[in-house]
Design a binder for these strands. Structure first.
Lengths: 229, 229
DNA sequence: GTCTATAGTCGGATAGAC
DNA sequence: GTCTATCCGACTATAGAC
């Protein structure tokens, strides 16, 4: 526990977690090798047994670490959204909050820091283990609940809870595609990296589409005006 | 090659490909075991060497098989889209064609038949190998080109090629999320399966959002009417 | 074409020194 | 807490019988 902060010598268990997320993300629980993980973390293999009880324990600990880390990454955006729209906010406030959350997600999905974690999560989505529940309960549930509630608020009773959540999911999908289909995006756009220019282009497009969708939700066809508080 | 169709005894190489896609999708190239693949395909391990030259050859063959299979799955929708909007179609025709393609994608993304292939592709997206190029060149490039061109047509010169493609990607993202974040969708919606009702709800939501987006693209701010053929 | 047998490497877990 | 040594099972590849 007593290490020098800012140095390359993080505590053994912390180094193991970082390397484990990368290896498990690439090769899966069964495919990853504790030998290789220990080697890259510059510690003997038996320290995995000591700190985490074994390979399976390290895997679950990695999932918890990912949940906490993502929560930390979107924390500011969620706080900003909460400040923009509380419990009984207006439709306009709800829309601003949705934009704030999606903006935070764009950042999370595009930054290199979450690349290894994304591999881990995507793998868990395709073939869920108990580790998925930890990540879902740790970050996803709260974010999705919040986003769904904001969309429902914007609908002002015209769309029900289920459809609000479905719409929240597709909104997230527009952002998610840039992380999970990164290789297709790069090839399709002819990009070699996602730098500031590319990030701006993506954010602009998503914001425009999000606005188009939310306008429709807010309008609805025969809008019964004068029903909100 | 001479097998009884409809029986459980498909040719050895065909059985190997099916099992390989499943195993490689779950465990990756390194993580999957040729022993296990051969066992599940009810053939000795050495037949992998005979038919595909080894593990790596089987992996590439699996990628080619996936590309051909997805192309086959989405073929009808692409043909339908082509019938709806040729080279110089009207904006209305382009919109109908986009809906046709996205409808085909919804089917591809929701059916169980593509589940194993999706795992394979998602893994390749997160950590691309030469197999990804085969899949991209085999299906993705053509579909994305077509969708991008249709969006550009709908924009009638108001949005450029790059933004059209970016919009095409986010449109696909709305569909893709139901495949790559399936576990989150199930948990978030409280679903236990995606049956006819759930499929309808998803298709309805995506169609609505797609319309909202495309309306905005077609309108643009100061729409110069009367320019289409 | 299909299968058995075998060679050589690498996997995770663990006991025990320091 | 950290590390070495060791066990045993599973892995890919290949030679060769049928």
């Amino acid at each position: 526990m007593n290490n020098t902060p800012g140095m390359t010598t993080a505590p053994t268990d912390s180094r193991l977690l970082d390397v484990a997320i990368d290896h498990f993300g690439r090769y899966g629980l069964e495919g990853a090798s504790t030998r290789a993980i220990a080697h890259d973390a510059a510690t003997p293999m038996s320290s995995i047994t000591y700190h985490f009880g074994g390979k399976a324990g390290l895997y679950l600990a990695a999932a918890d670490h990912i949940a906490a880390s993502i929560r930390h990454h979107i924390g500011p955006a969620m706080a900003h959204a909460a400040a923009l729209c509380g419990e009984g906010g207006s439709p306009a406030q709800a829309r601003a909050a949705i934009h704030a959350i999606l903006g935070g997600m764009i950042h999370v999905m595009l930054t290199r820091e979450t690349e290894a974690m994304a591999r881990f999560i995507v793998r868990e989505q395709a073939d869920p283990t108990p580790a998925f529940d930890r990540i879902y309960d740790g970050v996803m549930r709260g974010t999705l609940d919040r986003l769904g509630a904001l969309v429902e608020r914007l609908g002002e009773g015209r769309i029900d809870r289920a459809e609000s959540r479905l719409r929240a999911i597709t909104l997230v999908g527009q952002v998610l595609v840039f992380r999970v289909a990164r290789a297709t995006v790069m090839a399709g756009m002819g990009w070699t990296r996602i730098g500031p220019d590319e990030t701006r282009a993506i954010a602009r497009t998503i914001a425009a589409q999000c606005d188009a969708i939310l306008d429709r939700v807010a309008e609805a066809s025969p809008q019964p005006i004068g029903e909100q508080p």
